[in-house]
Amino acid sequence: MKSTRDAYGEALVELGKSNKNVVVLDADVSKATRTKKFAEQFPGRFFNCGCAEQNMMGVAAGLSLTGKIPFASTFAVFATCRALDQVRNTIAYPRLNVKIVATHGGITVGADGPSHQSLEDMAIMRAIPNMIVIVPADAIETKKAVKESVKYEGPIYIRLGRAEVPIVTNKDSPFAIGEANVIQEGDDITIIACGIMVAVSLEAAQLLEKEGIKAKVVNMHTIKPIDEDLIIKVARETKAIVVAEEHNIIGGLGSAVAEILCNKIPTPFEQVGMRDTFAESGKPEELLAKHGLTANTIVDVARKVLKSLKGCLIIEKKS
């Protein structure tokens, strides 16, 4: 168990050693985003912007214009909502080489409550032209994502979490922006997930197996550009698709997958995510349970969609 923000802090220090152009900006939450580790090692390349996220995004844009590779970090809700206009107009529109790495994505922020939890960041960032959106599944993948982001010239949004999450990938797991990974094979149903819901989906797949349902699990770490080819492939290989995300069901991974399915290969489809509601203060695991972001919910939804499919087939046969 390790939080993706902890991995980010470590990745930044490693990057700082190998790439002198990497600079880091934070908006007075460097202890929480873990950029403090970089600040301690490279004080000349770390700039605290204070409680001023909008200016931070503009400063990052300016730094990129001088050949620096700025990482701008704060909580997901502030990076994408508070500073949205700056991200859109100053960074994304001119395709500037700024990496926005936001921690505290989702509801596992926990006790701080809805003002600090982020349910809509993936939807918002995904809708902005030129923006790449990545949501790593665990600490190992976070390090890969942060390092890969430097190889890409342009704006990237990486969403990380506060809570500790299980490790589901290993150092040999492939990671390429825009190329999702099948991390468990199965031919009955596909569960597509990102972030913390990848581990939950693997747990769900185990539960389904006990019932004789073989679930394929896809780690869709890149929300944009979404891996269209893989979605079409798994839609062909299995009977239905369930998407699981720690995000509003409007606009996030589920929507991105549904767009491909509807346009290219209509497939029975269900979503597990926040049902268009704010959460509340509480422990991460309590919030996940209360809002149905659990393996049991995925199992229920998978059963339901497969059952409805059988119903459809029966009707077809009758007619």
Binding site: Q54, G58, T90
Partner: peptide, 29 residues
């Protein structure tokens, strides 16, 4: 990205000074 000599994309008011700060900081570094 479209016009030679234009240093930054602006238009949404209030953002240019922040961009200038970033460029100035990069220049200092």
């Amino acid at each position: 990205r479209k016009t030679k000599g234009v240093e930054a994309s602006t238009g949404s008011l209030g953002q240019g000074l922040s961009i200038a700060c970033g460029i100035a900081l990069g220049g200092k570094m």
